[in-house]
Amino acid sequence: MGFKLLSKLLVYLTASIMAIASPLAFSVDSSGEYPTVSEIPVGEVRLYQIADGVWSHIATQSFDGAVYPSNGLIVRDGDELLLIDTAWGAKNTAALLAEIEKQIGLPVTRAVSTHFHDDRVGGVDVLRAAGVATYASPSTRRLAEVEGNEIPTHSLEGLSSSGDAVRFGPVELFYPGAAHSTDNLIVYVPSASVLYGGCAIYELSRTSAGNVADADLAEWPTSIERIQQHYPEAQFVIPGHGLPGGLDLLKHTTNVVKAHTNRSVVE
Rank of each mutant, 00 (worst) to 15 (best):
A200Q: 14
T14D: 10
Q61L: 05
V132L: 03
R128A: 12
M1T: 02
F26V: 13
Y34M: 02
H230A: 08
N184H: 03
L249K: 10
V265Y: 02
P244A: 14
K258C: 08
F168P: 02
L249G: 07
K4H: 14
G72W: 01
V257G: 11
A98E: 15
S191I: 04
S208N: 02
W55V: 03
G148I: 08
V189G: 11
S160A: 09
S191A: 05
D214G: 11
T60G: 06
H241L: 04
P170W: 13
H180D: 01
T93R: 00
V187W: 01
R120G: 14
V256G: 13
L97G: 02
N184A: 08
E80G: 11
L82Y: 04
K8R: 06
R142P: 14
L127T: 15
V237D: 03
I40H: 03
G242K: 04
L73I: 10
S160Y: 14
Y68C: 06
T93V: 01
V257H: 14
A90Q: 14
F116S: 07
R206P: 13
H260T: 03
A200T: 12
I224Y: 11
R206S: 12
E145I: 12
V256E: 13
L73T: 03
E233P: 05
H117E: 00
T14C: 10
A59T: 06
G163R: 08
A98C: 02
D248T: 15
N262S: 09
I201F: 00
D52P: 05
V166Y: 01
T253A: 03
Y68D: 05
D77C: 03
S208Y: 03
T254F: 10
T109Y: 14
R263D: 02
T182S: 10
S223V: 08
G131C: 01
L13Y: 13
D52C: 04
T36Y: 05
D248H: 08
T153Q: 03
H115Q: 00
L143P: 08
F174C: 14
K102N: 02
G105A: 06
R141W: 03
T222N: 05
S161D: 04
V265A: 08
R76K: 11
C199Q: 01
T153R: 12
G32D: 05
G245W: 09
P152K: 14
V121Q: 15
V256C: 15
V45R: 11
Y188N: 12
S30T: 14
S113Q: 12
T109W: 13
G246E: 05
G210R: 10
P69L: 08
G32K: 06
S27M: 07
L6Q: 01
L97R: 02
V256Q: 03
P152Q: 14
R206T: 12
P170L: 12
P190H: 00
S205H: 15
K102H: 02
V126A: 15
I224F: 10
G53N: 08
P170M: 01
I104A: 12
Y68K: 05
Q229F: 11
V11L: 04
S160K: 11
V54H: 14
H180M: 01
W88V: 03
Q49H: 04
V132W: 09
G245H: 12
G32T: 07
T109E: 08
S205G: 12
V67G: 06
N262C: 11
T261W: 06
I227Y: 01
G163A: 07
D79L: 12
P176M: 02
D164E: 14
G246M: 04
F116H: 01
A94C: 13
Y135C: 15
L156K: 14
G246K: 03
S208L: 12
A15I: 02
P170V: 09
N92P: 13
A130S: 15
Q61S: 05
T254Q: 05
S16N: 08
D118N: 13
S7K: 06
A25I: 05
T86E: 00
P152F: 13
G43L: 10
E203M: 15
A19K: 00
L96K: 00
G197V: 08
V124H: 07
E233V: 06
T253C: 12
E99C: 02
A259R: 06
H117C: 00
L6P: 03
D29P: 09
Y175E: 12
G240F: 03
A15M: 01
Q228F: 15
E33P: 02
G123D: 05
L250E: 12
R206D: 12
V67C: 05
V257Y: 00
S7R: 06
L83G: 03
T254R: 08
Y175G: 03
G246S: 08
F116R: 07
V237C: 05
E33N: 14
P23V: 11
L204N: 15
A144F: 07
A111V: 08
V126M: 14
A259F: 04
A192N: 04
L173N: 10
T36H: 02
T14R: 08
L143C: 11
S193K: 11
R142T: 04
S137E: 14
L96P: 00
A133K: 14
G131D: 02
L96H: 00
E44T: 06
N211D: 07
V257Q: 02
T36I: 05
V132C: 11
L156W: 15
E80R: 13
F63R: 03
E145W: 11
D164V: 12
V126D: 13
V108K: 01
P239E: 07
S205D: 07
D118M: 01
I84R: 00
V194W: 07
S27T: 05
W88I: 00
V237E: 04
I238G: 13
V28W: 03
H115C: 00
E39T: 03
I40S: 08
G89M: 03
D52H: 01
G197Y: 01
A234F: 01
Y175K: 08
Y231I: 01
V266T: 09
A213N: 14
W55R: 07
G240L: 04
K91N: 08
R110G: 11
L96E: 00
G198P: 11
V146T: 09
L247H: 11
I100Y: 00
G158T: 11
V266F: 12
D64V: 05
H252I: 09
L247Q: 03
A165I: 05
L159E: 05
V124M: 01
P41N: 15
S38A: 08
R142L: 02
P35N: 14
A111I: 03
S31M: 14
R141V: 01
E101A: 13
I58H: 09
G245L: 14
E33Q: 09
P190A: 12
R141N: 01
A51C: 08
V194E: 03
D125G: 12
D214I: 10
R141K: 13
A144G: 08
G32W: 09
R142E: 04
L217D: 01
V257T: 15
D119M: 02
L13A: 12
A215M: 06
L6M: 10
G2C: 04
A25L: 13
Y196V: 08
P239N: 11
G240D: 06
I100E: 00
S113F: 13
L247F: 01
D118F: 15
T182L: 05
Y34R: 09
T182W: 11
S56R: 07
P232I: 11
I17F: 02
E39S: 08
P170K: 12
T86H: 00
P152C: 11
Q235N: 13
P107S: 08
R167Q: 06
V37T: 09
S16D: 05
G53T: 03
N255A: 10
L24G: 05
V37Q: 13
G53C: 03
E44I: 01
W220Q: 03
A136C: 02
S162H: 01
L97D: 00
P138R: 15
K258H: 11
R46W: 04
E80M: 11
I227T: 04
G169T: 09
Y196M: 02
A66N: 04
K102P: 13
W88P: 00
H230M: 14
G78D: 04
V54E: 12
F174S: 12
L127C: 05
R167H: 00
A19W: 10
P152S: 14
S70A: 08
K251G: 12
D183Q: 03
V146L: 03
N255D: 02
D85E: 13
S38D: 05
Q61K: 02
S205I: 03
H115L: 00
L243Q: 15
F26H: 00
A178D: 13
V67P: 10
G169H: 02
T254N: 03
A192W: 04
T134I: 12
N262R: 06
P221Q: 12
D79E: 13
L10R: 08
G122W: 14
L82H: 15
F236C: 13
L96W: 00
S31N: 02
V171K: 01
H252S: 08
N92I: 10
A234E: 14
E99N: 12
G163K: 07
H241C: 01
L13V: 07
I74A: 05
R226W: 10
I40M: 13
V212T: 13
Y34P: 12
